[in-house]
């Protein structure tokens, strides 16, 4: 009980919520206000949860931005430009994510090149590939799509005109991952790999397979958001998605995951994502000049993380035996 990684994150989330409830007024607390940050959090969260797992296992994935763009463009080109069936476009788009994850995972585990560099390379390469192919195939960088009612309902509809179905996808993804992390041996493997790879391997954990699977997971998450955004906004643009690279890492870190790996939880990542989204959107409910938005964002994020660290230290020092220092 004492070793709860999410306590600090929870206080951070509540803190920014109260902050904007005070300064944002009734509109922030209305259902439309809640939808503002929930929608942003849901899309970010679908990427942040698997990225968080990777970071618990001690690796980074920067390629998610380009995976999102590539998956969006794939869906828009296959089902929009070429007029193919929606299901084919969606499957191919998700395949792009899985394939990129596989490539990332294989290179990281086979070469021992730091994952920061490997995924930075795939981020750039995939961005170029997406732009190049889009231009060759369609002659443009933005492609429209007219989704059929079923796909629209599954991926891109607004519940009661406000809440994206992405929120349900986020809950589903987070639920699966949380269960896996806490209840199955794979969860222990992930912590073990992030904690100490050598001893993890010595105890018979297939560290490489674990990492490859985690990269496939983050690629899939990013591709899913690409599908959701493309169907929601009826089209895709090559330049979309790049902001998710750092936003996902920020959300994970606010959520109490250590950048060095081995420590964190899914609930923490969810809370971190909510904190980021509340801060990111809450500012527009304050009525303050939004020239200062980035400044306030930066300060609040820093405060949230500092608070997090304090609580993590407390949690670790009061634990029966602290394995790692924060």
């Amino acid at each position: 009980m004492t070793r709860r990684p999410e306590v600090g994150a929870l206080i951070g989330t509540l803190g920014v919520f109260v902050f904007f409830a005070i300064f944002g007024g009734a509109e922030f607390l209305s259902s439309a206000g809640a939808a503002s940050w929930l929608n942003v959090a849901a899309e970010l969260g679908i990427i942040a949860v698997p990225v968080g797992l990777l970071m618990i296992a001690g690796e980074l994935d920067l390629s998610v931005g380009s995976v999102l763009a590539a998956s969006s463009m794939t869906l828009a080109i296959v089902s929009g430009h070429w007029g193919g069936p929606m299901i084919l476009g969606i499957l191919l788009a998700l395949t792009i994510g899985v394939a990129t994850g596989l490539v990332n995972g294989l290179i990281v585990t086979r070469t021992n090149v730091p994952s920061f560099v490997v995924t930075l390379a795939t981020l750039a390469a995939l961005a170029g590939l997406t732009l190049g192919l889009s231009r060759v195939i369609t002659g443009t960088t933005s492609v429209g799509l007219k989704p059929d009612p079923t796909s629209k309902a599954l991926f891109g509809t607004l519940i009661s005109g406000q809440f994206e179905v992405a929120i349900l996808w986020w809950i589903a993804v987070a639920g699966c991952v949380a269960w896996m992390l806490q209840e199955t041996r794979y969860g222990n493997w992930i912590f073990a790999v992030g904690g100490d790879k050598e001893s993890a391997r010595a105890t018979g954990i297939p560290t490489n397979k674990v990492k490859i699977a985690l990269y496939v997971g983050s690629g899939f998450g990013a591709a899913l958001v690409g599908v959701i955004q493309t169907i929601l906004y009826n089209g895709a643009q090559v330049a979309n998605g790049q902001s998710f690279v750092f936003n996902s890492i920020i959300a994970v870190v606010i959520g109490g995951v250590l950048l060095t790996g081995g420590y964190g939880s899914v609930i923490g990542v969810i809370l971190g994502t909510l904190t980021f989204a509340i801060v990111n959107q809450g500012i527009y409910y304050t009525g303050w000049n939004s020239d200062w938005a980035s400044l306030i964002l930066g300060i609040l994020l820093l405060v949230a993380v500092l608070m997090n660290n304090t609580f993590r230290r407390l949690a670790l020092s009061s634990g029966p035996r602290s394995q790692r220092k924060a």
Binding site: G24, G25, E27, F28, S30, A32, G33, A35, S36, W37, N39, V40, E43, E164, Q229, L232, Y233, Q237, A239, N240, G241, Q242, S243, F244, N280, Q281, Y284, Y285, T286, G287, S290
Partner: peptide
């Protein structure tokens, strides 16, 4: 590059 964040920011400003 994130249409959702831009949409929600504009919505918030309109509500406010």
């Amino acid at each position: 590059g994130n249409p959702t964040a831009i949409t929600q920011a504009i919505k918030a400003t309109l509500l406010k």
